[in-house]
């Protein structure tokens, strides 16, 4: 059974990492989590981003956050990607599967997945 004591081990592991992380994340993934987003399936999309970013070892570079209604409810789940010095990229009608591709192709390798962006709808 999992116990609270295991969190102490996580804490010990984390303390080594904290110093490296500060100030180095420059990509923000923002998932719309208002009523419209949630009803359209944003929860698994958010989970997929969190998991895939972690699995791809991008945690130091990429921050996954939640926001309210972005204002284009018919395109939910909507995910916006902000990166210093680049235009915002808006992905629409996202799924967990699409999220994994975005992490791999866009966040990891720097290639925007054009077919999922709002310009393509």
């Amino acid at each position: 059974m999992k116990s609270l004591a295991e969190l102490a081990a996580i804490k010990a592991r984390m303390q080594d990492k904290v110093a490296i992380r500060e100030g180095s994340g420059n990509i923000r993934v923002v998932v719309g989590m208002a009523t419209c987003g949630i009803a359209a399936g944003a929860r698994p999309v958010l989970s997929a981003f969190v998991e895939a970013v972690n699995a791809a070892d991008l945690v130091d570079k990429v921050t996954v956050t939640q926001t309210g209604c972005i204002g284009i409810c018919q395109y939910e789940p909507v995910v916006e990607i902000f990166e210093d010095g680049k235009d915002k990229v808006t992905y629409v009608k996202m799924t967990a599967e699409k999220a994994k591709r975005v992490v791999h192709e866009h966040l990891k390798n720097g290639m925007v997945v054009e077919e999922f962006t709002i310009g393509n709808k």
């Binding site: 996580i10 804490k11 303390q15």
Partner: peptide, 8 residues
Amino acid sequence: MRAVLGDV
């Protein structure tokens, strides 16, 4: 959890 995790 927080009591164990401290500032994590």
